[in-house]
């Protein structure tokens, strides 16, 4: 798994890429929690995530919960069909805030 972080004035955009699986989800978790910890809105760009498993979903859930507790936003953007399928299986599609792209997310005020 690869990642990049773009720290903007009021938001952080984290891009994850590749497989988020049992091997890489601990580092995905650390990266996301660190970003959430800065108190800004976090957008997770999932466009280039090729695979996600339950441990990857769990790290998204934990970061989502942490952002909520801190009163900041946590939004998934550009979620591929494969990843969306797993989020739906976990019945989290109605729980997470999900947008097609960054502009749509910002317009919606998330």
């Amino acid at each position: 798994m690869e990642h990049s972080i773009r720290d903007e004035a009021s938001a952080i955009v984290v891009e994850l890429a590749g497989d988020v699986d049992l091997e890489s989800s601990p580092s995905a978790r650390t990266i996301l929690l660190e970003c959430v910890g800065k108190g800004k809105s976090v957008y997770v760009d999932m466009a280039r995530v090729t695979y996600i498993d339950s441990s990857g979903v769990a790290s998204l859930v934990e970061s989502f919960q942490s952002a909520r507790a801190g009163g900041s936003g946590f939004t998934l953007i550009s979620v591929s069909e494969e990843v969306m399928r797993v989020i739906q299986l976990a019945r989290l599609d109605k729980i997470f805030t999900i947008h097609d792209n960054l502009d749509a997310a910002r317009q919606a005020g998330d």
Binding site: D53, S55, A58, V61, L89, A90
Partner: peptide, 9 residues
């Protein structure tokens, strides 16, 4: 949502 639990689901 522990990985084990979710995976079994």
């Amino acid at each position: 949502v522990r990985p084990g639990g979710l995976g079994v689901h």
